[in-house]
């Protein structure tokens, strides 16, 4: 069984970092939604505050969309890189194939 690789190719590296971002996003979302109400409840309760809150919410949804699309693209890029590596030779293929399991 090949050892876990120490370094990854560009595509896998990028996908891994986007995966990290996907883990951070819900925490960030929770903070963005909870913090203003704990901090300035009166302000958020006002008409302007409510409007601002809806804008924030829309931005959050867009962030989720952007991240998911980026992740899908990165996943496709990794697949391509893998397929190419397979065609190339056995050396780099083995490296990348295992790369998907390393954290």
């Amino acid at each position: 069984m090949p050892e876990r690789p120490l370094f990854l190719e560009r595509a896998s590296f990028r996908r891994r970092r986007l995966g990290d971002a996907a883990r951070i996003l819900p925490v960030l979302a929770a903070l963005v939604i909870l913090a203003p109400v704990w901090w300035v409840p009166a302000l958020v309760s006002s008409g302007g505050g409510a409007t601002a809150f809806f804008v924030l919410w829309a931005l959050l949804i867009m962030a989720i969309r952007v991240l998911h699309r980026a992740l899908l693209r990165a996943e496709a890029a990794t697949m391509r890189a893998q397929a190419e590596a397979m065609h190339d030779d056995d050396g780099p293929a083995a490296r990348d194939k295992d790369g998907t399991h390393a954290v």
Binding site: A22, P26, A29
Partner: peptide
Amino acid sequence: GLEFATIYLGPTIVCAGAWWG
């Protein structure tokens, strides 16, 4: 007032973690 939105904000947070959760 705005408290009604909590019912939809919770799922939004969960969906933000849809990719891995």
